[in-house]
């Protein structure tokens, strides 16, 4: 494992969004053997091995240290890892694939609005039915932890790898713990989320493995990759201001500009038009504001934090 290994979700919206996100930083995904192959390459990063895996596999392999970095959901990492902070490091949340892991009950349970209500309803259920209320989920560990935190003991877990939201109507469970992004699947199945039933807010993230064997070559490739990713992220929040006369120090100070040259500076999007007006007031005839694609800078805090964490856990 001397070369940097990167795993990308292999299917669905998560894959599409990941591809878009990578190409914004100049990395274009090319699958070997057409659209169905599971190995690939990133144009612009020839020194990395690229793998296409399911989000769950990516989480498992990051935790086990069989991959260097990958794109996956934090929900899966939290559920699969016993020692999150020692296993993985979230380098960047990607702003897509957002979803909550929640506790939901049938909408007809008018008596149950909170986890405390669920506890009491569970106790009565056990009295009536001679068995514990069942909770269907694929998030076994997260559910156990959350229910213990909320002091809810009156339940049993049923492992449900898919279509969990159908379990209450089918009678295989009374309660579910599942992931939802819009809540429409829950509504369609006549389920409601408990008031204090959000276990975890999750989104797709770029995650580094702290368990993996990091060679200096892998770290070098990571620096190239991360540098470009962070350059794109930095560009998203900034615009380029160009003036026909030199930008005075007073304006740089007032609007927290980052000078690029005497007449060009970077500025946060929200300050840009005020900065342009200020430049006109000190004599500029023309000021242009332009969007930018990437801003490379000599320091990369995201990479530094990861490397620091890596050296501490070694």
């Amino acid at each position: 494992m001397t070369r940097l290994s990167i795993a990308i979700p292999s299917k669905g919206r998560l894959k599409e969004k990941s591809e878009d996100w990578l190409s914004a930083s100049g990395f274009k995904l090319r699958q070997k053997g057409g659209g169905r192959g599971y190995s690939a390459e990133l144009k612009g990063l020839p020194d990395a091995d690229i793998m296409l895996l399911s989000a769950r596999e990516i989480a498992e392999e990051l935790i086990a240290g069989n991959l260097h970095i990958g794109i996956t959901g934090e929900d899966l990492l939290h559920d699969l890892s016993n020692t999150f902070d020692k296993d993985v490091h979230v380098m960047r949340r990607l702003g897509f694939g957002g979803a909550d892991v929640i506790v939901a009950v049938p909408a007809s349970w008018l008596d149950v609005e909170t986890m405390a209500d669920l506890e009491a309803a569970g106790a009565l259920f056990r009295q009536r039915h001679g068995r514990r209320m069942r909770v269907a989920t694929k998030y076994l560990k997260l559910t156990r932890q959350f229910f213990a935190e909320k002091a809810v003991g009156e339940y049993r877990l049923i492992e449900s790898p898919g279509a969990t939201e159908a379990a209450p109507a089918a009678g295989t469970a009374e309660v579910i713990v599942d992931i939802t992004s819009t809540g429409s699947t829950l509504k369609a199945n006549d389920l409601k989320v408990l008031d204090d039933g959000v276990i975890l807010k999750s989104e797709a993230s770029l995650v580094g493995s702290l368990r993996a064997n990091w060679s200096s070559d892998a770290l070098k490739t990571l620096a190239v990759f991360s540098g470009s990713i962070e350059a794109t992220a930095a560009a998203r929040e900034q615009v380029r201001i160009e003036s026909d006369c030199p930008i005075p120090e007073s304006v740089i100070q007032a609007f927290d500009l980052t000078p690029v040259s005497a007449q060009i500076a970077l500025c946060t999007s929200k300050n840009a038009s005020n900065a342009a007006r200020a430049l006109a007031e000190v004599g500029a005839q023309t000021v242009a504001i332009a969007t930018i694609n990437q801003v490379f800078s000599s320091d990369n805090a995201v990479l530094e934090n990861f490397v620091k964490n890596l050296s501490q856990s070694a």
Binding site: S108, A121, F125
Partner: peptide, 8 residues
């Protein structure tokens, strides 16, 4: 229009 579902 909500109806009880399942075992409860």
């Amino acid at each position: 229009g909500v109806r009880p579902v399942g075992n409860r």
